[in-house]
Design a protein around this nucleic acid. Sequence first.
DNA 1: ATTGAATAGTCCCGATCGGGTCGTTTTATT
DNA 2: AATAAAACGACCCGATCGGGACTATTCAAT
Lengths: 74, 74
Amino acid sequence: MRTIYDHKALGQLIRQERKAQGLTQAELAALTGVGIRFLRELELGKENCRIGLAFQVIRALGLVLEARGRGESA
Amino acid sequence: MRTIYDHKALGQLIRQERKAQGLTQAELAALTGVGIRFLRELELGKENCRIGLAFQVIRALGLVLEARGRGESA
DNA sequence: ATTGAATAGTCCCGATCGGGTCGTTTTATT
DNA sequence: AATAAAACGACCCGATCGGGACTATTCAAT
């Protein structure tokens, strides 16, 4: 379980997961239906990308996002 | 703990948390430094908004996002 | 060290976002 | 039911995204 505090952390996570699955950026991009450049910038922590596309990638990788309030216990 | 499978779920969560904290959209928008319209559309599950702004809102609300691989146990 | 793959950076351009605001609709309170 | 507040939808417009392609750079493996 990994905490995602911002878009950079998200990019790192995506890259890590992509590599863990043995995919290249081009392959994942094709799989996900987004452009290679988008994926690259997402992994590099681009400040502003479209969240819909980001979620497509997240789901394509089989990642699960969970949220809780600050105080809320896991 | 709540699973965020897409941008709609994220919007719902944000709205719920905003209300739980007794804030109006205008107040939260001002607090966060985003436009009211952006916040509104984010809560309504706009497909494509800038992820950087979304994270600003998430942090402003004190929400914590966590991610794990599909198989990974919590 | 060499070689090929993977990633990063840049180009142009159409498509869309996000800003504020005004008018309308929904929700809440009394 | 009446009133006020909050949320929604639409408007215009400048700013930026995201697409593919092409080159340069980094990386891994032999």
